[in-house]
Design a protein around this nucleic acid. Structure first.
Length: 201
DNA sequence: CATGGGATTGACT
DNA sequence: GTCAATCCCATGC
């Protein structure tokens, strides 16, 4: 099973919702996506807001490719490019529930509690050893980072929506999706978040 | 070419 | 609660 480009070539809010429950795998280490955020060229928090540059060309490229960039000079953050080519948009993968290779995650993360192995966008790239050099690689199975569909028989959890974390621009948009009550979600935990409107999946 | 500002995290008060 | 680490990139001179 794989997620074809068609999955990503849709409104970024739908993809952000539908990526909850999918898995991310990198060289045998994997987790289930439990938190995402949507970014779109129409709003200033998105890197693509400034148009096509050397940095943002990935966001305007083919849906289903990875956008990996360095945050605060320290962390690599993983995004999935969405919407048709030519539209700058992506879903930020913010948290995973560890699945495979947990011992490897533990050694890379310096012995934190298992609930904190992947409870943040910088934490999960460290746990999975995802690197900047993997920017613009295919997420459908031809690249080192692979996002797979929800498992057969996967039971939809309650998904809640809230405002995005750590941004100053367009901070009011409710474009953050989390699994309600999931201990692997990043801080601040969903508190005053409302249930998501089912967008598909 | 210099500069300012992050889609964060961990340590510390 | 506050704050530094650290570097790439977009912008402006």
């Amino acid at each position: 099973m794989r997620l074809a480009p068609d999955f990503y070539a849709r409104p970024v809010l739908e993809v952000a919702h539908d990526l909850i429950g999918c898995t991310v795998e990198h060289r045998g280490v994997s987790g289930v996506i439990v938190e995402t955020e949507a970014y779109h060229e129409s709003e200033p928090a998105c890197h693509a807001f400034v148009g096509v540059t050397e940095r943002t060309k990935t966001l305007f490229g083919e849906p289903g490719t990875a956008y990996v960039y360095r945050s605060y000079g320290i962390h690599a953050l993983l995004n999935a490019v969405c919407e048709p080519a030519g539209v700058g948009a992506a879903v930020l993968i913010r948290a995973l529930q560890p699945l495979d290779g947990i011992d490897e995650m533990r050694s890379r993360r310096g012995g934190v509690d298992d609930e904190q192995l992947c409870s943040g966008p910088g934490k999960l790239t460290q746990a999975l050893a995802i690197e900047l050099s993997e920017n613009e690689t295919d997420l459908g199975g031809d690249g080192p980072v692979v996002i797979r569909p929800r498992a057969a028989g996967w039971r939809a959890p309650e998904i809640v929506v809230g405002t995005r974390i750590g941004i100053t621009q367009a901070a009011e948009l409710p474009w953050r999706f989390c699994v309600a009550g999931c201990p692997h979600v990043s801080r601040p935990r969903p508190a005053n978040m409302r249930p998501a409107i089912e967008a598909g999946g």
